[in-house]
């Protein structure tokens, strides 16, 4: 228990350091009144899951590296969240309600390169399996939120 709080403290401290930049690209987790910040550098460094699939906004097959979102939330923050609100650096926000826990993937790298703001990073959310959704119909990928700034647990 003490260890868990220590981790949260360290992570929060890292977030504070990151927040002193002109605009922070670190990831903010929110749950009720608790706010935790995880540095982008750490997320990039520890990312070890890979998914290869067609990227509709790139119009090609891409290998994504990052985390299964549910695993990340559970392993690092013990969250078993049902509803999430995800907000982007530019203010765009999406709510995921009763989300398919095994399907959402938080991307840190694309074809081995870390994501930047210019290529829809530094963090991006994608679905591993989009079933029979047309890859050319971009409106079906509105939930693939780019430039993620914060993830808030609603429930």
């Amino acid at each position: 228990m003490i260890r868990k709080h220590l981790i949260i403290f360290v992570v929060s401290l890292m977030g504070f350091v990151g927040a002193t930049q002109a605009y922070s690209q670190d990831l903010i987790f929110k749950e009720n009144n608790r706010i935790m910040v995880v540095s982008l550098e750490e997320l990039r460094r520890l990312a070890n899951e890979e998914v290869t699939r067609y990227a509709p906004f790139r119009r090609k097959e891409v290998t994504f590296r990052g985390y299964y979102l549910a695993q990340l939330l559970e392993s690092r923050f013990a969250y078993n969240a049902k509803d999430l609100r995800i907000e982007a650096i530019d203010g765009y926000a999406v709510e995921l309600k009763d989300w398919d826990r095994d399907n959402w993937f938080l991307v840190t790298h694309e074809d081995g390169e870390p994501l930047t703001l210019r290529n829809h990073g530094p963090l991006r959310l994608i679905e591993v399996d989009t079933a029979d959704r047309s890859p050319t119909n971009l409106s079906l990928y509105d939930d693939w939120i780019w430039m993620i700034r914060s993830i808030e647990v609603l429930r």
């Binding site: 930049q21 605009y23 119009r59 090609k60 703001l117 290529n119 430039m147």
Partner: peptide
């Protein structure tokens, strides 16, 4: 500078579309 660069990066990101 950082704010300015952020605006440029966002402009770049929304133009950087495969289609």
């Amino acid at each position: 500078k950082e704010d300015f660069l952020k605006q440029l990066d966002l402009s770049y990101a929304y133009l950087n579309i495969g289609r």
